[in-house]
């Protein structure tokens, strides 16, 4: 396809965007699950620590968080590459959101469920694993879908510190070509990605249709 400029650069950017988002989501989900569990079942000091962490993630502007990581830490001699700083921020930010999603999912399960399984003689672990968790996960599917889409869109912010993701290349090309055409390619990319993710989320939700009340 010849539309007057080299699209292979954009393609590289797209691949990097997907990698960053996938890595960030993966790490965030693992840490978020652990954090969410500790937030609802852990010792008090740990709960407070996690509450504080979530407040930081939720309360500070994303650019500020990113700049502190990338520029701020140089003051302590910590020089992160744009990619490393960007990836760490994706995980830092995503974990905060994932913790909240897991916590809400777990606490949203009716307490009668835990009572019923306890009364049947299931251990705490069995009750959690077999009764509470499956219901919590089902409740989490819609917010998790939104979360994955959010993480994918967040990668664009990394362009500011020079991570060569899709927006970075789009901006480079836009400066010496017709900008709208370039941006439309990015629009196409994000739409295809996010609509796919949305369909996937809806499919999983449908698979768990017992959860609809």
């Amino acid at each position: 396809m010849n539309i007057g400029f080299d699209t292979s650069q954009m393609l590289h950017g797209a691949v990097l965007t997907v990698e960053l988002a996938a890595g960030g989501v993966g790490v965030s989900l693992v840490l978020g699950a652990l954090g969410g569990l500790a937030r609802s079942r852990g010792p008090r000091w740990l709960r407070w620590l996690i509450v504080g962490y979530v407040e930081l993630v939720r309360g500070l502007p994303q650019i500020l968080q990113l700049f502190i990581l990338y520029f701020g830490l140089t003051q302590f001699g910590i020089n992160l590459s744009p990619f490393t700083a960007g990836f760490i921020w994706m995980c830092f930010y995503g974990t905060g959101y994932a913790i909240e999603i897991f916590r809400a999912g777990i606490s949203g399960v009716h307490p009668g469920q835990l009572e019923a399984s306890t009364a049947l003689g299931l251990s705490r672990f069995q009750s959690f694993r077999r009764v509470v968790l499956p219901q919590a996960v089902a409740r989490m599917v819609p917010p998790l879908t939104t979360f994955v889409i959010l993480e994918l869109k967040n990668t664009t912010l990394l362009y500011i510190i020079g991570v060569p993701e899709i927006m970075y290349h789009a901006n480079l090309l836009a400066s010496n070509s017709q900008p709208l055409n370039i941006y439309l390619i990015a629009v196409g990319f994000y739409l295809v990605m996010n609509m796919t993710l949305g369909r996937l989320g809806a499919y999983v939700e449908h698979k768990m249709s017992w959860a609809k009340s």
Binding site: A116, L120, Q126, M208
Partner: peptide
């Protein structure tokens, strides 16, 4: 050794009826 029945049933919504009944004998 003690069975309990609740006012609000508290069946496990993510399991079929037969699995609701069979869960505890298998696990416990």
């Amino acid at each position: 050794e003690t069975g309990m029945v609740f006012q609000s049933f508290n069946l496990f919504p993510h399991m079929s009826v037969v699995d609701n009944v069979a869960l505890a004998p298998v696990l416990v």
